[in-house]
């Protein structure tokens, strides 16, 4: 199955990004394809390369980067939501790209399921 994923909350404050990451990993392990992860609302903060959690904690930004690289998943940060929050090109961790909301709609059209994580 082809999956699109939408992440609507920032890392650490909220479980949504962890859940989305674990879901994506499990889906890939089961042989599904994740086409694209779209980061919206405070979810754009998942792309911040300056994020530096304590060393005994999971590093969500890095986990997303690695998952994207390993499996060719597009990690798209919404430009409009990102601009509001100062999430610009120079802050992006490896593998993340800034693009428009159209990428979310396109993922909804192209994927068999679009799975939304957040409140």
């Amino acid at each position: 199955m082809k999956l699109g994923i939408m992440v609507n909350e920032g890392p650490f404050t909220h479980q949504a990004s962890d859940s989305a990451y674990l879901f994506a990993s499990a889906a890939i392990e089961k042989g599904h394809q994740v086409l694209r992860v779209f980061f919206y609302y405070d979810g754009v903060n998942n792309a911040n390369r300056l994020s530096e959690p304590q060393s005994d904690d999971r590093n969500l930004v890095r986990l997303w980067s690695e998952l994207g690289k390993e499996h060719g998943i597009e990690l798209i940060v919404c430009v409009a939501a990102g601009l509001r929050r100062g999430m610009k090109e120079e802050l992006l961790a490896d593998g993340f790209t800034i693009s428009g909301l159209g990428q979310l709609i396109e993922a909804g059209i192209a994927a068999d399921r679009l799975v939304v994580f957040g409140d």
Binding site: Y41, A80, L101, G102, L104, I105, G108, I109, D119
Partner: peptide, 19 residues
């Protein structure tokens, strides 16, 4: 919270995709 405003932006974009 910003949810209402930002989802509305998504609705407007979706209209461009003839869905």
């Amino acid at each position: 919270t910003i949810y209402a405003l930002e989802i509305l932006e998504t609705v407007l974009i979706s209209a461009a995709f003839d869905q």
